[in-house]
Structure formats: structure tokens, C-alpha cells
Amino acid sequence: MARRWTSDLSPRDVTPERAFLNRRQILGGLAAAGAVTLSSPRARAQEALEPNSWEEITSYNNFYEFGTGKDDPARYAGQMATSPWTVAINGLVDRPGEYAFKDIMARMEIEERIYRFRCVEAWSMVVPWTGFELADLLDMAGIQERATHVAFETLLRPEEMPGVARPVLDWPYVEGLRLDEAMHPLTLMATGIYGRDIPNQNGAPLRLVVPWKYGFKSIKSVVRITLTDSEPPTSWNVANSREYGFYSNVNPDVDHPRWSQATEREIGGGLFSPRKPTLMFNGYEDEVASLYEGMDLSVHF
């Protein structure tokens, strides 16, 4: 099941940041010299993706368990113990149980995915994740026929998480996907960034990445995955259903009630960073639009 989706420009599983930069320069140079012709429009779209720096990706985070400030996670998430780590996989699966993170890693095929990341707050980054397809993990547990949805839960450990002392959200943080969304080849369980272990503030040791949805759907530091036969509750939807829908697909035409989603600002552009148009499904329309055929996306936002 792994490698069902590839970006033509990430041939290696693991690429250090410097190599990323060099490779772009080399490719840029070759392309300019006419030595490289990229095969498809999709490949060209990937080519245009320039990953944010390690510093940007790891210093500007929303992980409210550590506080609501963007720098709180980088400051406080270091206290979170991530080893040993187990993920409970249960509900409508053939092989429920507590899966040790290191056993999961031994069985999954790790690959690199350079994805756009669009926050509901109208900022965006490009992140070079490493990880495995969620589908592979779910297949490992054996999905039962009746399952229609997947529920996820973040670690809740108040002694290591200063933010949960405040009732910003109803802890623990929970998220959910429809089963077909969960099984989609783009849907990743990320375990690394730039080929390094994922830092705590980004959701160590493993977090969901659903690149066509707003960032809050991509739940961090997952400790439980439950296959269900109904739509599971999701934290932001519970907190404010008018503002945050279950689907939360990136959609420039459906505004957040309090701000426009038509444009976004890429992190890293400095004080005069321009806004750029937000893409339908965050640029993954070709891959995922069929999942929502016939649905009114302004109703199922």
C-alpha cells in the first residue's frame, strides 16, 4: 500500500535540509539549461513547492496542550515523554490492541512527502514530512466491514502539558476522518521532518497529516485510533460547530465566519510577505475532489 502517491521530486526516503536546498538549486539549474523536462503538470506543481526551513516549521506551532501562543509548543513540549509510546488501535478492527511505536515503525515503510500545510488561521507552510500511509497502519489492525469512520486521540498528560490546565478545549484533543479519507494515499502518519525524528512541538512521535484539510485536522501525538461506524466528535467542532466543520477541507470559497479563507500568507516571508490565493483542497483537488462528489461543501464545510 505504501508509495501509492509520489511526488516525482522526492526520490529518496530521507533528505537532510542542506541536500534539499542543493537539490533544488541543481534542478533549477538543469531546468534552466533545458536538460530536465518534467513529465506531468503534477510534477511541475511539486517542483514549485519549496519547503520551509526547519526553524520555521518547528518554532511556529499550534499545539494548545502546551499553550495558545505560537511559541509555547517549542518552549514547553520538550517535557513530553515520547518514549516508550504506544498507540491503542481499537473499535471495529480484527486485531485490536496496544501497538508499541517501535513495533509500528518496524513494520511500516517510511517515505518522504513534501506537502503544503494550510492552517485554518490563513497561514501556510510547506513541510517535508517523512512517515507512512495511515492506510497501511489500519490494514495492519484489520478494518472490519462495518467501519465507516476513524477517530483519533492525542496524549493527555497534564503534568507534562501546561496548556491543559486551562479549558481552551475539551481535552483530550480528538479528531476524525471518514474511512475513505483515512485510506486515501495522501493521508500520512508523519514520524519525521527533513528526515529527522519529528520534534515534540510538531506532534512526536507520530501525528496525522491530511494535506487537503486545515491543519487542526492533522492531530498530533496520537495515542488512540478507533474505527467506528458513525462520525466521531472532533475537538474544534465540539468547541464551535458554527466555525469548524467535521470535514474542514481547505476551501477558498467557504470563509471562516470570522475571516476570509480566500488567501493565505506563507510563513517565512518576513514583515512584507505577500498574501497568495488559497487553492481548492489546498492544491490536491485532482487527488481528492472525487471523495466529495455530490456534496455541498458550503454545508459540509
Binding site: 511556529y60 505560537k70 518576513g270 514583515l271
Partner: peptide, 15 residues
Amino acid sequence: LGLTGGLGVEPIEAL
């Protein structure tokens, strides 16, 4: 600070 990177990676929001 915003011009020199001292306000973090999203200086507009910070300012």
C-alpha cells in the same frame, strides 16, 4: 525586531 527576525517566523501577526 520584525525586520531583523526577532519577532519569530510570522512577524506581521506578532507586530
